[in-house]
Design a protein around this nucleic acid. Structure first.
Length: 554
RNA sequence: GCGCCCGUAGCUCAGUGGAUAGAGCGUCAGCCUCCGGAGCUGGAAGUCGCUGGUUCGAGCCCAGCCGGGCGUACCA
């Protein structure tokens, strides 16, 4: 619809130029928007004001000229007007609105989809939590955001891969092994001083117990280093298995699990370092190897190989991101916790250094989650090993509520997550508010079958009965949906869909409360049923992009 | 110190250059003979942190300041 308006304007300007009424032919990007105030029309454009300086004419005069030349072959316009400093307002024929209902029913599960991605390969990497402990609520938010962004991009025509990067190498894995090993010895009734730098959580003891069940005392009889290595591998594998299960319970499945260790095994980390040395962007200082990230906008250079010969996490990260591009991804998106934001310039630098354009790489930063219960913060301290896991939250409030609430804020804005609120079944809880629309329409649908009114065929006379303001309002809301999806893909902001759904739900509840769908008038009933079933489809489509179910009964 | 993010109604937040700044919660006043009341309608509530600038037009862009969070490792 918006595009149709744009075309009318472009044609009018071209025509005015040809007739000599405009001195300038070029047309800037035309912006057509839906005014906030209904009396300003269904659509409006600021084109007259924007081109005033170019055309050397007053805005209102330009607006008049455009209107003079506007043609409307499909008769979609009911009225036009010039308002304020030079806005052109368009009022659309109600008839033109109704055709979208047919479109929604025809397109069904793909209504709102587009092909702006044009089949380009794009990767979304998210969660990528270290395999040193279970996922906590913060990871849950990153998971919800990453998964939803990936879904949205896929819906917009990208060829999307969801990837999890496993940091199964380096110091933290050693620490994990040491932690489990020490708990193991402790359980063997040795007096152990458990160090602060080791992982404190109870789950470490659980793994130690499992090892005892499996191996008995065997680990005490062998070389300590060997035992720690065994504990590390055992625990890491168990943790990854648990993480995978927690994510499954959260409704998230990855296309690929990528091992950091594999980058060392295939020699890719060393290869990158050698390559950068040749390019003269890695140098030696104080016994360490430094990558000149300052060449690429970072505030200081970064170490890739430490004095003791060990590579840093950054070194494998360079190799990892190069590998992503080698795998043919046109764009690469990382979802990180906001506390890692200082890391962006160096990774961007690495990407540029390896010959890729920096705008093919995007980072979505996800802010922290404050877990509350009845408005009171739930105490959490990772250091003491006290944290609420994602799984506990999902068990308590359910997958749908958790996922939806994670997406009720802009991802860069901190989020208060109230466990009690998430369980409430009132309109305080946005999840139920939206899902309730779907269930309610399912109920109407069932009722309509009982009464023999159910029909999904396009029936123009029935649909044209829809003239109530609340009905037009619903139709207009649904017309907006494809654009909302496109914008949330463009800006990688799933919360736009969440807000849209809450808005659509509100319009529906208002309509439902005021007008009966199924009445004594069969034709009107059919028209209204056709309308609400369209609403149901849009709600269901939107929820599925968020990874939330659309129940028929609640 | 420097860098990034945030500052919008009592609270939690939408709003990435348009006209009279919105929603939920809370508050006040109402709505069930009826398709699911897990719902709806209406009112009150604002110096968009402050000060300048850019332009036809700024909550949005730019500069400076104030307040909060995070980062600033040869940790991840």
């Amino acid at each position: 619809m918006k595009q149709k308006i744009k075309n009318l304007i472009i044609d009018a300007i071209t025509c005015a130029y040809e007739k000599g009424d405009f001195s300038e032919k070029s047309v800037p990007e035309i912006e057509v928007e839906v005014p906030k105030i209904t009396s300003h029309g269904d659509f409006s454009t600021n084109i007259a004001m924007v081109t005033a300086s170019v055309q050397k004419m007053p805005p209102r005069k330009i607006a008049e000229t455009i209107l003079k030349y506007i043609k409307d072959p499909d008769r979609i316009l009911a009225k036009t007007q010039i308002a304020g400093p030079g806005f052109i307002n368009f009022f659309i024929n109600t008839l033109s609105w109704h055709s979208v209902l047919r479109k929604i029913h025809q397109e069904d599960v793909v209504y709102g989809a587009s092909n702006i991605g044009n089949g380009k390969k794009i990767q979304v990497e998210f969660v990528s939590s270290n395999p040193t402990g279970p996922l906590h609520v913060g990871h849950g938010r990153g998971a919800a955001v990453g998964d939803s962004v990936a879904n949205i991009l896929r819906f917009c025509g990208y060829d999307v891969q969801k990837e999890y990067y496993i940091n199964d190498s380096g110091r933290q894995i050693d620490t994990l092994g040491k932690s489990v090993y020490l708990r193991y010895r402790e359980l063997m009734e040795e007096n152990i001083q458990f160090p602060d730098e080791c992982y404190q959580g109870d789950y470490i003891r659980d793994y130690a117990k499992e090892i005892i069940a499996l191996k008995g005392k065997a680990l005490l009889d062998q070389d300590e280093e060997q035992s720690i290595f065994f504990c590390a591998r055992f625990a890491a594998e168990r943790i990854i298995k648990d993480i995978r299960k927690d994510l499954m319970d959260f409704g998230i499945e990855f296309d690929n699990w990528f091992s950091e260790q594999s980058l060392y095994d295939t020699g890719k980390v060393n290869a990158v370092i050698e390559d950068f040395k040749e390019k003269n962007i890695i140098y030696e200082k104080d016994g360490a190897l430094w990558f000149k990230t300052t060449n690429f906008g970072d505030e200081k250079d970064r170490v890739v190989v430490r004095k003791n010969g060990q590579t840093t996490y950054f070194a494998s990260d360079i190799a990892y991101h190069m590998d992503k591009f080698e795998r043919g991804f046109h764009r690469v998106i990382d979802v990180w916790g906001a506390d890692h934001h200082g890391y962006i310039p160096r990774v961007t630098g690495a990407i540029e250094a390896s010959g890729q354009s920096r705008d093919r790489f995007n980072v979505i930063l996800v802010q922290l989650v404050n877990l509350l219960r009845e408005q009171v913060p739930v105490a959490m301290s990772t250091r003491a090993g006290e944290f609420v896991t994602l799984n506990e939250v999902v068990q308590e409030v359910g997958r749908d509520a958790a996922r939806f609430i994670f997406l009720t804020r802009h991802h860069e804005s901190p989020l208060d997550f109230d466990l009690e609120l998430a369980k409430k079944k009132t309109n305080d809880n946005p999840v139920f508010y939206v899902q309730y629309v779907h269930a309610r329409i399912s109920s109407i649908s069932r009722k309509s079958r009982e009464r023999g009114l159910y029909e999904l065929e396009w029936n123009e006379t029935a649909v044209l009965m829809l003239q109530e303001p609340e009905e037009i309002n619903l139709i207009k809301a649904m017309i907006r949906y494809p654009e909302v999806v496109e914008d949330s893909a463009k800006y990688m902001e799933p919360h736009r869909i969440t807000f849209y759904l809450m808005d659509l739900a509100s319009s529906f509840h208002a309509y439902y409360n005021k007008h009966r769908v199924l009445s004594d008038d069969p034709l009107l009933s059919k028209g209204r049923l056709y309308l609400v079933l369209a609403v149901q489809k849009v709600i269901r489509n939107g929820l599925s992009l968020l990874g939330v179910s659309a129940p028929d009964r609640m």
